[in-house]
Design a protein around this nucleic acid. Structure first.
Lengths: 213, 213, 213, 213
DNA sequence: AATGAATGAGCCTTCATTCAT
DNA sequence: GATGAATGAAGGCTCATTCAT
């Protein structure tokens, strides 16, 4: 009835966050139930409202928490100008693919659900966290594409690369089918995306440079 | 939209299907309510269960129906071997991008939600409908990559291309912000993906052919 | 505003209304529970929301219903000018006292709770229903007080009379104690209020008439 | 559980009482929440149970405390037999009307809520505190009505007077609307009630005295 | 063929109270 | 003496589904 462990109770908040991330990433906001989260966290049903005020607030906190954890685990490549741009590109691609492929990385899973089926609850949080990532990508691409390529093309290229990197997630769920053995070897996929994109980038750069006198 | 169809009974059943597609594509399976669908269809609350047996069954039927409608509107490119492969690739890319970019194309929206937040209800249906598309893409890529490129690379390349094509969907929801005007010009984006990918493909082909002599 | 439902549906709906009146009048809005009301009505817990949309809406409907029932049972005295004003006054007093004293008349009990502990939910409804009653009282008093008595005094007198009439309610709850045997004999109390008030009215009339030349 | 013995604890304890009076008088027992009271008192959520044992106990204590404060502020008129009875009546009326009209006088507000929506928690307390007031009123009326008026009539008359005095409370809540400026001028209302009642009393006295000889 | 009424399971949330510190 | 953490019980409401007509 009352097996209270004080040390544990101090961590209830954190346990709730971890449980929430798992459940939200598996089921999405609506399908996840507070009861399930609390049970998984070994806490009372009222714990969510006590610690976070509402399911919605927990959702926001959980994503933010997961996002920060994710960044810790897969740090964005250092924008060290001394690195050759090619290496930088590969590091960038690897960083995204790793984060996306890491089955422990629920943050991306939540983000993905949110994008495809928005609750609107993460709009601000996401904006706030993702904008810098986007800008870094475009900055790197500007270096790789050179000065003659128009802005539009830079953005399109950024989309091309990010799309390929995020793709594993798209089919992650279909794991039951063997479709996803496709990307079984994550490193090989990174190599592919790197090569495929580098060639594309170089070709586009050449196209616009040849135009110039 | 199609008054000629009146006669073949925009009966309750069909009205339900159309309403279901709209609501499911907007809200996903769980967030959509039977009441909302029935109201939109001008039918009774019990209509769904009467005509389809359950919400789940309606979901399946609705997706299948939407998928067929989508194929009618955006037919897959003819795999005419006589066409130059480059043209075929561009047609392929255009076909996917168009379908994905068409805001009326609820089927893709449902599919996307299903991938990111699977109900499991569409697993079979999707498998059944999408396998041919996947095979066509790989067949085309085999032609473009030549005989020396390993199977894995073919699959990776298919993923690279499909990823880029499906990307517009990823940000479809964020349309409110002007950030995503990135892909405003769909045709320009098609050109980009085509060029970017063609260069990647050619580079990979060259890499493996040079190994061969 | 005058929701006429289907014939048979009136059954559960009406049972809910009757149960609601009983429970609300006994416990007030907040203390009454939907479950209790539904149980008393022999209906399902969801019945309230099905028929009325919410507990609040049921509250409004219930009071309105009770009010109309009350008016049917204790009709306001006919403002027949042919009646001698004294008789009219007594009829008026009797009408109010009867309605207030009738233990079956839950409407007044709800109204009273609402006044002392407002939910704000009945504001419009009450305003709408009570305004005519108030105006009738003042009109009658104007006749009784004559042309020389100022408006303020008319209103004060109306308050004096209505207060005395509504008072039984004030102590209705204390029935356990014998305090309220005070008004056991309702008709005697009516006689008292009538006499007491008539004397007051006549005195005030005289006071102002004597002032006039 | 009565762990309060120290005088130092009176600080939080008293703050809780004051907060409780405010919240209970505004919302009633059930609608008031312990959290709201504690917050207003600047105390911890557990403070109520710590100092008073339960919400119910706090309710009782709070009313008693408020009642005593009220008596301090509006002392009952001295039943000085030397005063002319008329003056005594007016003082009596004024005393009640003032207490009832004082918006700071939460005790009356709580009492009123309790009467209309009894929790049963104050039954004893109220009985205990109000009985003397009632008896004083009846004693005064006996003097005014003379020896020939029957007991019932005395009680009815007491009710008539008290009712009129308490009436302002009835409409206290409706203050937003200007309808109730009726009683805006409290002193004018006191004059009215005094005159109106005195005339009634005198008439009734006369009626029974004329019967006698 | 179709519907309005009704339902039961389940969800999120509130709140007075308890417990360990 | 006082508190933050935690809880269990309960409440209102939603919704897919069933039933009688």
């Amino acid at each position: 009835m009352n097996p209270r462990r004080r040390k544990d109770s101090l961590k209830t908040r954190k346990k709730l966050l971890n449980a929430a991330i798992k459940v939200f990433s598996k089921k999405g906001f609506r399908d996840a139930t507070v009861i399930e989260i609390c049970t998984l966290a070994g806490a009372n049903v009222a714990a969510v409202n006590y610690h976070f005020g509402s399911k919605e607030a927990l959702y926001r906190e959980a994503w933010r928490y997961a996002f920060l954890e994710s960044l810790k685990k897969h740090p964005a490549p250092n924008e060290d100008e001394s690195l050759p741009p090619d290496e930088l590109l590969k590091a960038h691609i690897r960083s995204i693919v790793y984060r996306v492929s890491d089955p422990e990385n629920r943050e991306i899973s939540i983000l993905f659900k949110e994008i495809s089926n928005p609750t609107g609850l993460l709009d601000e949080v996401i904006e706030e966290e993702l904008t810098p990532l986007k800008e870094n990508t475009e900055k790197l691409l500007k270096r790789l594409l050179g000065p003659y390529v128009p802005e539009t093309e830079v953005k399109f290229s950024a989309i091309s690369i990010v799309s390929q990197c995020m793709n594993p997630l798209l089919f992650q769920r279909a794991k039951k089918t063997d479709e996803l053995n496709d990307i079984q070897d994550v490193d090989a996929y990174v190599e592919h995306v790197f090569l495929f994109s580098l060639l594309g980038i170089q070709g586009i750069r050449a196209k616009y440079e040849n135009r110039e006198p």
